[in-house]
């Protein structure tokens, strides 16, 4: 399949990029959240291209414009800011993250999660910003136009029905990126550039939990940088990923944990991916773990919480109950490894 036709723009600065987005956002409602996939038309941002281009081939996106942000220098680089936080430009590639000495030292769970994404060549292209904004995935959605036509399309794109939960009006496509659960555990914040200047919010507030309108990102905004707070630096962590192949695959389930531990757990976070329409922090896990010494039984208790948070459906290979069970096993193992 060839790509649909589009116009190509390649701004050199963030402000120029935002201006282009503003100019091409529907005049009626420029503040409306991006609800990808858009109807035909609109503007799509491309960074690494590893998510958008295969999707455009399948006609999941048929934008009027493609905005290439790779020439924007201010979106690159890893730097420590006064106060000790670490800022990652949205264009930082996953290879740069897995190789960065400072990330490996201070935020090892992020480096570990980055290392599991797809394959080394894809990580040379794929960016942290793109991984955060990765489109949700579903076997009924990530298919060619011809294929989707065969089953009357789906609610996420061109149709009005969810094959995964028939009868419902909600899209359950699974969020399938590896680094966001690690970032959630590290309590990362993000900076979004828009016409009114930058705004900053916890990463956890970016996601809506909807499979289709997955992010609170407006049509005229760009994810600019990720901020790793000083307070979670040096937390021990681990990421576990369920995949069929040892390379290339998206996660069928993933669990990240990060712990501040000095004999007893001071603080801890657990986040899961690949099983819900968003990456989610496991509620009450921090409360359960804090102040206790890590043990197999405590880990098992936390694993129960994680498994209950997981809502896998038939969006992906392997059956839902198995994937939920794996969230449990992986949570227990990740905790024991991070706390060991």
């Amino acid at each position: 399949m060839s790509l649909p036709e589009f116009k190509f723009v390649r701004p050199q600065s963030l402000s120029e990029a935002v201006a282009i987005l503003q100019q091409h956002s529907p005049a009626a409602d420029p503040l409306a959240p991006r609800r990808p996939p858009e109807e035909r038309g609109g503007i799509e941002i491309i960074a690494g291209g590893t998510d958008l281009i295969p999707s455009m081939r399948q006609r999941l996106f048929e934008p009027e414009f493609v905005l290439d942000i790779r020439a924007i220098r201010e979106l690159r680089g890893i730097r420590e800011v006064p106060g000790g936080d670490l800022e990652l430009g949205a264009l930082t590639t996953l290879t740069e993250i897995e190789r960065s000495a400072i990330i490996r030292q201070r935020y090892p769970v992020l480096a570990e999660a980055a290392r599991t994404v797809a394959s080394p060549v894809i990580r040379n292209m794929a960016t942290i910003g793109g991984n955060i904004c990765l489109d949700t995935r579903c076997v009924w959605y990530n298919q060619s136009l011809q294929w989707r036509k065969s089953c009357g399309f789906c609610i996420k794109k061109d149709g009005d029905l969810c094959h995964v939960a028939p009868g419902g009006q909600k899209c359950w496509a699974a969020f399938s990126a590896d680094t966001p659960p690690a970032l959630l555990c590290l309590e990362a914040e993000i900076e979004i550039a828009g016409p009114a200047g930058p705004r900053r919010l916890p990463l956890s507030e970016l996601y809506t939990g909807e499979g289709d309108a997955r992010m609170n990102l407006r049509r005229n905004e760009i994810l600019a940088r990720i901020i790793l707070p000083r307070r979670t630096a040096n937390w021990r962590g681990a990421y576990r990923k369920l995949r069929i192949r040892g390379s290339i695959d998206y996660p069928l389930a993933g669990v990240a944990v990060a712990i501040e531990n000095n004999g007893h757990i001071q603080q801890a976070n657990i986040a899961i991916t690949g099983v819900n329409p968003a990456p989610v922090l496991v509620k009450r896990a921090g409360g359960l773990l804090a102040g206790k010494a890590l043990s197999e039984s405590l880990a098992a208790e936390a694993a129960d919480l994680a498994a209950r948070t997981a809502k896998p459906l038939t969006t992906s290979a392997l059956t839902p109950e198995y994937r939920r069970e794996i969230v449990r096993v992986f949570t227990r193992r990740a905790l024991m490894e991070a706390g060991g």
Binding site: S119, V139, Q143, S144, W147, S150, C151, I244, R245, G246, S247, I248, D249, Y250, A317
Partner: peptide, 20 residues
């Protein structure tokens, strides 16, 4: 699914990679 192949691609049909 009813004659519709759910995994008609190299991403979904998991022939082994070097990793495993």
């Amino acid at each position: 699914k009813d004659g519709l192949l759910i995994n008609p691609g190299m991403l979904g049909y998991c022939s082994p990679s070097a990793a495993e």
